[in-house]
């Protein structure tokens, strides 16, 4: 479908810059970011295109596809970009803009709740049980002690992330994850 460039959101680029994608204007569309991106070939996440869409203010196109959430944040593009346009930072900024608009994929909500309740993005319950069984010492992680988790919760409660991330008070982890065991 033909895109009429006038019908764009001129504020998007300013917002992205405010939210951390300060150097998005430096991009000159060389494609180095996209060519080194580990997810580009298998997903809709096309970082060079995203950079261009931001400068053109094509917000709907960016947000529609949810592609920005597929970035692994490996920072490969940020390392390599010859203009130091910091594409990863632009992705972060776009996620912030998206979250503000209430658009966060379910998987991310789950991760947020994991952190809020367990102190980890991915759960390690099964691992803790296993370690107990063999009398291994307790893992010193953010989730290993209630007092750490309290602090994490205090932090999240004090910002508007609490509502943005749709934290549920009576939340149960959906998967019993397997970090560090099996």
């Amino acid at each position: 479908m033909k895109i009429i460039l006038n019908n764009n959101n001129k504020e998007l680029v300013n917002k992205v810059m405010e939210y951390g994608g300060k150097r998005v204007y430096e991009c000159f569309q060389c494609g180095m970011c996209a060519s080194g991106c580990p997810v580009a070939s298998d997903t809709e996440h096309k970082i060079k295109r995203t950079m261009h869409q931001v400068t053109l203010g094509l917000e709907e196109q960016i947000m529609d596809k949810k592609a920005i959430w597929l970035c692994t944040t490996c920072f490969m593009c940020l390392e390599r970009c010859p203009q130091n346009a910091e594409p990863t930072e632009v992705v972060f900024a776009l996620r912030r803009v998206s979250a503000e608009n209430g658009i966060i994929p379910e998987a991310q909500i789950e991760v947020a709740n994991n952190i809020y309740h367990l102190g980890h993005a991915v759960t390690v319950e099964k691992g803790i049980k296993l370690r107990n069984k063999v009398n291994a010492p307790l893992l010193k992680t953010a989730g290993s002690d209630k007092k750490y988790i309290d602090e994490i919760q205090k932090l999240i409660d004090s910002t508007h992330s609490y509502s943005l991330l749709r934290i549920e008070k009576d939340w149960k982890p959906k998967r019993d994850d397997v970090i560090g065991c099996d």
Binding site: M1, K2, I3, I4, L5, N6, Q29, H52
Partner: peptide, 15 residues
């Protein structure tokens, strides 16, 4: 002004 945007892979126009 009708053209093509190589990066978007779409026809574009500017009024």
């Amino acid at each position: 002004v009708s053209g093509d945007d190589d990066t978007l892979g779409e026809q574009i126009s500017v009024i």
